[in-house]
């Protein structure tokens, strides 16, 4: 690990100022950054520990939504009664991620900026445009079982690893960011960038931009998170589906669908949503919508199975939600 300076500011202004310095990195729970520093993938000159900032509250918003402080730990958010009652998809997604120990440390803000688990990103000796721009991508013809199939480019096929972000994307979450120029609000769907030719630029955040909160609008309909992985616990998603579904008289009145494990960012499945909205809530419609969403998939031999896996998982998740809706 490269030697680094450590500061722990006590107010947001000081944190933003410290974070804006060249080579500075914010430290939340450390569950991702510290690993990356050990491996030499991240080499900050200064680590700005933000865990002393007052950003650990979960508050009701007047419009019925929820405001989640950036430092709320994953375990606490998953256990929050309001989250469990109104946003079950979020609680389920959080609990499906990592392990109990990691969830006790990991923060909401940190999880939004979790970096890919592509093995070539982690291996300093191999080519990775995300880690070392212009060096190439060894995942293209390598072990790419975990890699993305939607929104990828010739320069990068790394998948975004977060479960929480997939649920938040389905819920239309908005991210509150404070930077050197003040505070602004970014819809989560616009926070992360697709790789294109610059896979090392992962978000629209500027140096010093500190995520302070995530806001959720009023909950609609019932929702669920289905995660498919290579073992029953403590594994990243091969495919995950965050879905919210409301049906009236057999027709879809509200649909939210987001995918994890298949794209470089939490993937809002707009095409599928458009096909489903207002239409019948039946198996054939679910399958058509899923197939349409996956139609643009760009696969490699090692991850081609994800097209069928994602399609089947979308169908199974929507069927389950529609059955629950009918039972009620």
């Amino acid at each position: 690990m490269k030697p680094f300076a450590y500061v722990k500011p006590v107010d947001i202004g000081a944190a933003v100022a410290a974070g804006a310095a060249p080579g500075a990195k914010f430290l939340g729970g450390g569950t991702n950054l510290v690993d990356l520093m050990r491996e030499g993938i991240e080499q900050p000159d200064t680590v700005v520990d933000v865990t002393g900032l007052p950003l650990s509250a979960v508050d009701d918003l007047p419009n019925g939504g929820l405001r989640i402080g950036a430092l709320v730990r994953n375990s606490d958010l998953a256990a929050d009664r309001r989250v469990r009652a109104r946003y079950p998809v979020l609680s389920q997604a959080l609990l499906s991620g990592a392990s109990g120990q990691l969830r006790n440390m990991a923060t909401v803000g940190g999880n939004l900026l979790q970096r890919t688990r592509c093995p070539y990103f982690y291996d300093e000796a191999s080519a990775c445009n995300k880690r070392d721009p212009g060096s190439g991508c060894d995942a293209l013809d390598g072990f790419n079982r975990s890699c993305a199939i939607l929104g990828v480019s010739d320069d990068c096929i790394a998948a975004h690893p977060s479960d929480m972000c997939v649920a938040l994307t389905a819920l239309d979450a908005v991210v509150e960011v404070t930077g050197t120029g003040g505070t602004r609000r970014i819809p989560l769907t616009e926070l992360h960038r697709l790789p294109g030719q610059t896979p090392h630029i992962e978000t629209d955040l500027a140096p010093g931009d500190l995520i302070t909160a995530v806001e959720l609008p009023t909950a609609t309909g019932n929702s669920a998170y289905r995660k498919v992985r290579d073992r029953a616990s403590y594994a990243f998603a091969l495919v995950s589906v965050a879905a919210g579904l409301q049906i009236e008289n057999g027709a879809v009145t509200d649909i939210r669908l987001a995918l994890g494990g298949v794209a470089p960012k939490p993937w809002r499945a707009r095409q599928a949503e458009q096909l489903l909205a207002g239409g019948p809530a039946d198996e054939a419609a679910f399958r058509r919508a899923a197939q349409a969403e996956l139609a643009s998939a760009a696969v490699r031999p090692g991850n081609a199975f994800k097209v069928a896996l994602a399609t089947n998982t979308i169908v199974a998740t929507l069927r389950e939600l529609s059955n629950e809706g009918t039972r009620r």
Partner: peptide
């Protein structure tokens, strides 16, 4: 990975053993 002659799943996040679940 035969290109580099090394194991690419070099940690317990990517080399899976059965979890309790």
């Amino acid at each position: 990975d035969p290109r580099f002659a090394q194991v690419v799943t070099q940690d317990l996040a990517t080399y899976h053993i059965a979890s309790n679940a």
